[in-house]
Amino acid sequence: MGLHNFPPYSVMTDNDVCGGEAVDLTRKILETADIKVVTVCATAARLYKMLGTGEIDLTINIKQTKALPANVSFIEPPYTQLSLVLLSNVIPNGALNSVEKPTIAAIRGFDYSGQRQRLSAQGYQFVDMPDSIDAIEMFIKGRSNALLTYEAPFNFFMTQRYLPIAAIYNRQLLDSINTYFAVSELSLHKTYIQQALSAYAAAEQLRYFTPPPDSSSAKLVPDTVP
């Protein structure tokens, strides 16, 4: 199972492996006495290549990512739903576009369901980082004017590391996007993985493998146009 650092669902450990909520659930569903789930934690761009060659069997991702290989099957129902937000520092007139050539921290290899292209066309410059935490840290440390992020890892990061800091950020909800278990067509275990995940979802009558989180955050000013 290939994952990138995207807490709380996947969290990188010291040995380039990932743990986290998604790993725990996947092991619960797929592992047997003879089958073990081994995780690989890498950048998103590397994971897409590994998925395309069958070097990894599965990952979790949205369907809209252009860098995903064509030989991938998505499992219904969705794993969870993610809130895609644009965060910016609170500035006097509340408008990010008042900053000359504003920069936006983001994850390298993510097109964010077309939002990267839309924001680039508006004159924003992207500062690409390897994973969600690196992008968040870039923004928190003031090295970018804004952050394009899925809200769950941002809230997790703020809770774990920055809760005592009374920082307030403008928040614009751009989209709500389902993310799915994605299985490589080259995986030798493709049939087992697909059948096991589908059977579990049916038996539990799931709409999502993991219910979408509450999008609210004490650190954000909701529905502010940056």
Score class of each variant (00 low, 15 high):
2 G>F: 00
3 L>M: 15
8 P>S: 00
16 D>F: 09
18 C>R: 04
24 D>N: 12
25 L>G: 05
25 L>I: 13
25 L>E: 13
25 L>Q: 10
29 I>G: 03
35 I>S: 10
38 V>K: 08
42 A>M: 07
42 A>V: 12
43 T>V: 09
49 K>T: 11
51 L>W: 14
58 L>H: 14
60 I>H: 05
60 I>D: 00
61 N>L: 14
63 K>Y: 15
64 Q>E: 11
65 T>V: 15
71 N>A: 03
71 N>C: 03
76 E>Y: 00
77 P>Y: 04
83 S>N: 05
88 S>V: 02
89 N>Y: 15
91 I>Q: 13
91 I>Y: 10
92 P>K: 15
92 P>N: 10
95 A>W: 15
95 A>E: 15
98 S>I: 02
102 P>S: 04
102 P>V: 11
105 A>L: 04
106 A>C: 06
107 I>D: 01
108 R>P: 05
109 G>E: 04
113 S>T: 11
118 R>D: 03
118 R>S: 08
119 L>A: 03
123 G>I: 00
124 Y>K: 08
126 F>Y: 12
128 D>H: 01
128 D>E: 05
129 M>G: 04
130 P>A: 03
131 D>W: 00
131 D>A: 02
132 S>I: 01
134 D>V: 09
143 R>W: 02
146 A>P: 05
151 E>R: 13
155 N>I: 08
155 N>A: 05
157 F>E: 10
160 Q>E: 07
161 R>D: 11
169 Y>F: 02
171 R>N: 13
174 L>G: 14
174 L>P: 10
177 I>K: 06
182 A>K: 12
184 S>L: 08
192 Y>Q: 14
197 L>Y: 14
200 Y>K: 12
207 R>I: 11
212 P>G: 00
214 D>L: 06
218 A>P: 07
219 K>M: 01
223 D>N: 07
